[in-house]
Design a binder for these strands. Structure first.
Lengths: 203, 203
DNA sequence: GTCTATAGCGAGATAGAC
DNA sequence: GTCTATCTCGCTATAGAC
């Protein structure tokens, strides 16, 4: 992707985040890219094209990032820990893009919407499978796997709603807190007492 | 509020939920209210006036509902349980309005935005205070109270993102699951072993 | 209280010069 | 590849009849 296109995309990310997709005009994007609005159409077919580009690349990069962080980890609990860490970290580092991904899907026409949802569902399924496997094999506490998956994913995703880049805690610190909250508390809490010592010794 | 105004508000809620605030035109609202768009301006000053009405009444009703559900409950843990149940139930029952409240704040001009945020912050502070008190008094496990508050509130709020009115689980069932997830797992998990029996017997 | 008609504006997108 | 100029459309909001 050439420099101008990158500039346009970055300006769009800032504006869609700040004002929302529909409230952002092509002229706004143009002004923030130091270009005339007609020139944008050399790089993108339409306004929706910009949104689609942002959404797809963000979703793909999230998927790749989490996969990279899981590489080489065999143990199921540790994979879950790494996945939560990576998901939360990405949602701190790429706050604007992921918030757009969360709230601007209604800006997509049917086909583009479908393309995006395929990626998102595949991503979410990986988390669900990790949780279900843990429950099946007993290293995570039993529970309604679907609901617990939603609870965990939405909780980790929502970090992007309140994270402040210059706040008290860094993205890494928040990732660590969430790793503990999710895996130690949410997923392992209700192990029966008699197995508690075992589960500690086994790790 | 008269019948016509209620009809307009209800149509707006459906459209803002489905298409977003900015993508909804006054003519859309008019059509779904079986009225001409000019007639809307007899009931509301502006399009933003409709949004503001929806946001404020929803926030106020949420606050009143949760307060009502807490009435007469003294025990701190039980208050937290009731608050989570009520919050989640409301987010199932009033799914459309709360999703608008979550994603359309950028449609408000400065003064209206401030008015809304005052209500929202006051509401969230009640949850935070319950959590902090529980940690101080030791019936909730220690942790970063701020982050845990955010984690809990965003997780419970996000139920509105995936809840399906005709799905497998009712709002009441989901409320129960979340009550357990939040209070038993997230907030009580890491009590040290020696106090575990005590904390069970004391309840 | 609701209507028809329209003002006034800014949007997304295109044409064609350079 | 970027520009100026412009098309066409639909938006929020208002005027004034009934």
């Amino acid at each position: 992707m050439n420099t101008t296109k990158k500039t346009i995309k970055k300006a769009a990310i800032n504006l869609f985040y700040k004002k929302s997709y529909f409230a952002t005009a092509m002229s706004n994007i143009a002004m923030n890219s130091s270009i005339r609005k007609a020139s944008i159409y050399y790089h993108y077919d339409s306004k929706e094209g910009i949104l689609f580009d942002i959404l797809m690349t963000t979703m793909k990069e999230l998927t790749v990032y989490v996969e990279t962080c899981l590489e080489g980890i065999e143990n199921g609990e540790n994979r879950m820990r790494a996945a939560v860490r990576a998901h939360v970290k990405f949602h701190c580092d790429r706050q604007k893009e992921v918030l757009i991904s969360d709230s601007e899907l209604r800006g997509l026409t049917a086909n583009n919407y479908k393309s995006f949802v395929v990626l998102r569902d595949a991503y979410e399924k990986k988390f669900q499978d990790m949780i279900i496997q843990g429950m099946d094999q007993g290293y995570f506490a039993a529970g309604d796997a679907k609901v617990i998956s939603y609870a965990i994913l939405t909780m980790c995703t929502a970090v992007a709603n309140w994270f402040k880049p210059k706040g008290r805690l860094s993205g890494d610190q928040i990732s660590s807190i969430y790793e503990e909250l999710v895996v130690t508390r949410l997923l392992k809490e209700s192990l029966p007492l008699y197995s508690f010592e075992n589960s500690v010794l086994e790790e």
